[in-house]
Structures are given as structure tokens and as C-alpha cells.
């Protein structure tokens, strides 16, 4: 008998909970977007750069949108897990997700990942991390020309460390090889920290690194070329590849995206919020200090950027495969 009394209590508890929930959501129905908390999904580990970016924006977004913003995580598969969840979510604007370029372009090109690049509706791209080719100060290669000459003289003996294969670093190396005819030995690492450690220890001859990682070690390294349109403010003396006659532009860009078929007005509201933050001079100053290039691309501009890069990467991936 005792058991049955117990199950009645259980049912009571559940009903109470459900009722309370229903009451609250009914109460909050008729207002314009957003009327309830927004989830900001991060596809990399808590504490990583994407998470820190989301945490930086969180209070500002709350102030602009007038709703709580909850930072949530869907970590795994180099981001693929979170992005495949994103494209399956309800397109109501209550789930926004950090996106990284080139990741969202390269992954679907490489294998079946559960999402397609075109499915993600970009809201804004707010941060760029240009890549740069660097050697240690003690290295014999004083500039890009010397290094390329050496690589041509002994093909495959100069090693370049990067983070992962089919990644921005890897593709930058491949493109450099293709454009110059030099041959390097590309050694992949599992992330920026092990990559930089091996580089500083002299276990690889050079690296393609992210600007924010390289800035931290500007005393001990020499940047041979920056893969951006302009010189990077952290290394004003380092020429761009373009200045050396090599049209190599590679960066890692961060932004946020929405599920496919999100209504236009919702995209606009979120775009305005993110752009307001991206254009905040204090935020831009912070980003620069950390070694990033602040951007403020809106929905249309981001979309065009992703399409342009997709076309470029398609050709490159075809070559590797």
C-alpha cells in the first residue's frame, strides 16, 4: 500500500512542475522577439576562445535584447556536433550558435558531417584571426625568400607545424606550396598550445600560427609573412604574403549563425544587437589587445564572405583529395 501512496505523490510533483512551467510560458506569449531567454551555443570547450567570446558578449546582448542569454555547449567533432544540432533546431531565433570559418566550410567538404555550410544562416562575423608564417629568432631564414629557396633546394625537409589537417593552417601550407612550387613537411598538432610548444622547442622549423598565439611570443619569433590583405598591427614590420607577390590570404573568422529558414525580422534584430557590440570601441580595443582583428560584418556581408570562401576552398580540397 505504501508504494501506491508514493506514486500518487510522484504524479503530484510532476503535475505541479508542469503546470508552473505552462503558466509561465503562457504568460510570456504576446510580445515581439525576444520574449524568452536565448541560448547561445558554443561548439568548443568551456574556457576556449569561442566560449570567452560568447561570455564577453553575453551581458551586452542581455542589455540590448532585454532577455537573459544562456551560454550553452555542444562540444565535439571539431565543432561539427554543435553545428549539426544548429541546423536541426527550430528557426525561431532562440538558439544562436558560434560559427568558425573555415571550419564550417571545410568539414562538410571533407566528409558527411550532419550539416551543410549553406544551411547555417550567418548573423554576423565579428572577429578575424589572420594566419602568419613564423620562425624562431635563431632560425637561419631571415625572410620568406630565403625560406622558400631553402625549401626548393631540399624538398620536404623543412617542417611546418600547424593545428590539425584539413584545417586553416594545413590549407595555408598547401596553398603556399602550390603557389611557390616549394615542398614542406607539414606536421599537424592537436591545437594551438602543443603547436606553439613544439615550435618554441625547435621540434618543427616553422609554423603557420594564429595571430593571437603569435603575438604572445613576439619576442622570440620572426614573422616571415602574414596571410592577410594588410599588415597585422601586432607585427607592423612583417610583410604580407601579397607584398612578396604571393596571393595567400588565410584567416580564422568567428561569428554567430542561426538555423535555416529563420524569419528575416528575427535575423535583423539579432544582427543589429551583434553589430552594436562589434562596433563598440571598448570591445574592439580589448580584442586588439588579445591579438585579434575586430570585424563588424552583418548578415548579408557574412553570407557573401562565406560563399566566396566556399568557392575557394572547394578548389583546394579537390586538389588534396
Amino acid at each position: 500500500m505504501k508504494r501506491s501512496k508514493w506514486s500518487v505523490m510522484l504524479a503530484l510533483w510532476i503535475c505541479l512542475g508542469l503546470m508552473a512551467g505552462a503558466a509561465v510560458s503562457a504568460f510570456a506569449q504576446d510580445k515581439s522577439f525576444p520574449t524568452k531567454p536565448i541560448t547561445y551555443l558554443t561548439t568548443f570547450n568551456p574556457g576556449g576562445q569561442s566560449d570567452r567570446e560568447a561570455r564577453r558578449q553575453q551581458p551586452l546582448l542581455e542589455a540590448i535584447l532585454g532577455q537573459k542569454v544562456i551560454v550553452d555547449y555542444k562540444v565535439g567533432g571539431g565543432g561539427a556536433l554543435g553545428w549539426s544540432e544548429l541546423v536541426r533546431s527550430k528557426p525561431d531565433g532562440y538558439l544562436i550558435c558560434g560559427i568558425n570559418i573555415p571550419h564550417i566550410i571545410i568539414q562538410p567538404l571533407q566528409q558527411e558531417t550532419g550539416y551543410k555550410t549553406e544551411q547555417i544562416v550567418p548573423v554576423s562575423i565579428f572577429q578575424r584571426t589572420p594566419l602568419a608564417l613564423a620562425v624562431l629568432k635563431e632560425s637561419p631564414y631571415k625572410d620568406l625568400k630565403e625560406m622558400l629557396a631553402a625549401a626548393k633546394a631540399k624538398p620536404g625537409e623543412i617542417s611546418i607545424g600547424g593545428s590539425g589537417t584539413f584545417s586553416g593552417h594545413h590549407i595555408a601550407t598547401l596553398r603556399l606550396q602550390k603557389m611557390t612550387g616549394a615542398k614542406f613537411n607539414y606536421v599537424p598538432f592537436t591545437g594551438a598550445a602543443p603547436q606553439i610548444t613544439a615550435f618554441l622547442g625547435g621540434h618543427v622549423n616553422a609554423i603557420f600560427g594564429n595571430s593571437d598565439d603569435l603575438v604572445k611570443h613576439s619576442d622570440t619569433i620572426r614573422v616571415l609573412g602574414t596571410a592577410d590583405d594588410q599588415r597585422f598591427f601586432g607585427f607592423p614590420n612583417a610583410p604580407t604574403f601579397k607584398e612578396s607577390g604571393i596571393d595567400l590570404v588565410e584567416s580564422i573568422d568567428r561569428g554567430v549563425g542561426l538555423p535555416p529558414n529563420t524569419p528575416e525580422p528575427i535575423v535583423k534584430i539579432l544582427e543589429a544587437a551583434f553589430l552594436k557590440i562589434a562596433k563598440d570601441p571598448a570591445i574592439q580595443e580589448q580584442m586588439k589587445k588579445e591579438g585579434f582583428v575586430p570585424l563588424a560584418m552583418g548578415h548579408a556581408e557574412s553570407k557573401a564572405h562565406i560563399e566566396k570562401m566556399t568557392a575557394i576552398y572547394k578548389d583546394i580540397i579537390k586538389d588534396i583529395k
Binding site: 565535439g76 567533432g77 571539431g78 561539427a80 556536433l81 571533407q110 550532419g114 589537417t165 584539413f166 598538432f189
Partner: peptide, 22 residues
């Protein structure tokens, strides 16, 4: 199980996206 940490190739995931996370 999951993605190869270097190349990002899916391994032993038997087509499951959940398992891709490792």
C-alpha cells in the same frame, strides 16, 4: 571512437553523429 584528433576523419562512429563527438 570519434574524430581522428589530427585529420578530423570519423572513426568507428558507425554513422552516428553523437559518436563523432567521441
Amino acid at each position: 571512437i570519434g574524430l581522428d584528433p589530427l585529420s578530423g576523419v570519423a572513426r568507428l562512429t558507425f554513422g552516428s553523429y553523437q559518436l563523432m563527438a567521441g
